[in-house]
Design a protein around this nucleic acid. Structure first.
Lengths: 188, 188, 188, 188
DNA sequence: AATGAATGAGTCTTCATTCAT
DNA sequence: AATGAATGAAGACTCATTCAT
């Protein structure tokens, strides 16, 4: 990817996190990325396109990040803990500030076929874990989306509260939260 | 509350859900509420204030709605199910379209003291349930915020996926999801 | 018509004549009309609409102006001379600077039904003259549009050359031109 | 003339006819001419210069085209008819789409000395015809510009109406129009 | 209390022009 | 000679806010 395009995307992500969707102007992006306003339009059709491409850019990043330090020889529980903490750290460290923030909800043309395909790819290692867990009767027989929401994604929701200043959480509480979310999906 | 003020708030909520935060103009609100533009400024200092008051308005609504059909004679499990389903129906029916959508995240002056107090009030019945559950050793000894995120709030997250078109869910799956989220917080 | 709308139209006509279609900015119009930029958009949908409405405004003016001092008791020749000179003076004095300048050619939505109807009205006295002339066999049996182009409209074309600085013309030459254009349409 | 310069001029003429003066960008011209944007500036100082040179280019074309099939052995009437029809066909066929359209009216630096000289050259055969006609007392003793406007140029004006869709004209009507315009300039 | 016309700063986007390659 | 990425001023249009009525 061109140097400038990359810089524009990075600048947009940063500003989107700070200012939100409204209050994000192309001039601001240009200034932050240290390019001329017009330059943005060489790489993106318009503001919408910029946000869409950013979305895909971020999804790609999350895809890589969520499966860090995961390999098939690990036990299900180990994989679960690792992914949960990957999400947690990514969220808390602001590596993907837009995750779970609904910032992309009002883009027209969203939920397109390509987006869904991308999400498939994103969660491939997640889906594999859930499939295996259900196959050996360790997990409850529910759709992967439901299992994920009940367990893995709680990581992001807790992180959001921490970031917003509404929640402090110790290491042992974090550990207990992981175990509790694990309880939600295993058979008892 | 004045008739006009009420109408303005209702119009704002509707438009906010449809158009998102950006693309919401005072003129649009005035038209939707059948009120002159200037009238809005009788009841609200500025656009920010309108959104803030709307936020509180909505929180108040949710407060009432979440505890519908709840009374102290019900068992903990019954209360949990009822509140979970109250949240679910409210979310799915679009009664509080802004719940969990992050639409209010970028308001300046947010997370103020009054907001937190309001949230306390909002979750008073929720907190009572968690406190009782922990007292009788049925629930895990975790902060109420964590318990809530792991269990009750999954209702909203699932509802959001349903609304976005990314998830279909049957009645039996819904029931299983409630049970699973219950498993997350009880001791095993 | 509102005072401001009138002022905007007048300003636009003036600037259009001076700067042409390109190089006419809404800011210029606003400044010339002594209104705020946004005010223009209370009365006109967009730039196109402004130009369209100006066009009709001008056609209306020409309609009144071309038939000044005309009445049915005058002979055909007298009426012809009067209309020819009305057009001439209007053109030369810059009363309708856009006449015959093709400034409206690139408006989309032009040549609409309403425009044609307006032109009918505009040329009603002209058409009546040509019809009478053909009825008494004084004029050649041609369509009114053709007769008009060959005779009356030469007034504008000559005026345009005078304005552009390409032609000087004396009173007697003017008179001769009227007679010559009369020769074009009468039977010999 | 260089191949590229020619291509740029041709592209500009085409786009000018379609899009009008406004809505013509150098990028569009470059794309249409299959040339890099910067290349245009090898051959033309700026956009104004491009339009000026295009104007001269077109005048040169018209000069050649108007005198096609004309030679001195033809009678005045024959020459008149031929030139009238040359103009007519050129206009109607869109060979010089900018003729009579006022597209060049607002160029600064226009009506320069060179432009006038060019026009002399352009109308040399026309002027010769009018001079001969006046010398033998066939034509009225008026300036050539006036004679031209009253007779020859009606060709363009009628053509414009036909193109705009405001006028349909049969062959016999066309013929009658030529005769009528001839009547305007001859002595009776 | 209510209106809605008016404002003008600010938004997204285009485009004539330059310049390193 | 030719390219086309980059620039940033300027354009059309919007909208939060005010104020005379």
């Amino acid at each position: 990817m061109t140097d400038k395009k990359e810089r524009i995307l990075v600048a947009t992500e940063k500003l989107l996190a700070t200012h939100g969707f409204h209050g994000l102007s192309m001039q601001m992006v240009a200034k932050e990325a240290q390019v001329a306003t017009g330059t943005i339009y060489r790489y993106f059709n318009d503001k919408n396109d910029l946000l869409h491409q950013l979305h895909e850019h971020i999804l790609g990043y999350i895809a890589k990040r969520i499966s860090r330090n995961i390999n098939d020889s690990m036990s299900l529980k180990q994989r679960y803990r690792t992914m949960w903490l990957n999400l947690w750290h990514m969220s808390v460290n602001g590596e993907a500030p837009l995750i779970n923030q609904g910032q992309f909800q009002h883009l027209p043309r969203d939920n397109s076929y390509e987006k869904k395909a991308l999400k498939k790819q994103l969660f491939s290692c997640v889906n594999q874990m859930f499939d295996e867990g259900k196959a050996c009767l360790l997990f409850k027989p529910l759709k992967n989306e439901i299992l994920s929401t009940l367990s893995l994604e709680t990581s992001c929701y807790l992180a959001r509260q921490k970031i917003n200043g509404g929640l402090e959480i110790t290491d042992s509480e974090l550990n207990a939260a992981i175990e509790a979310s694990w309880d939600a999906i295993i058979q008892h």
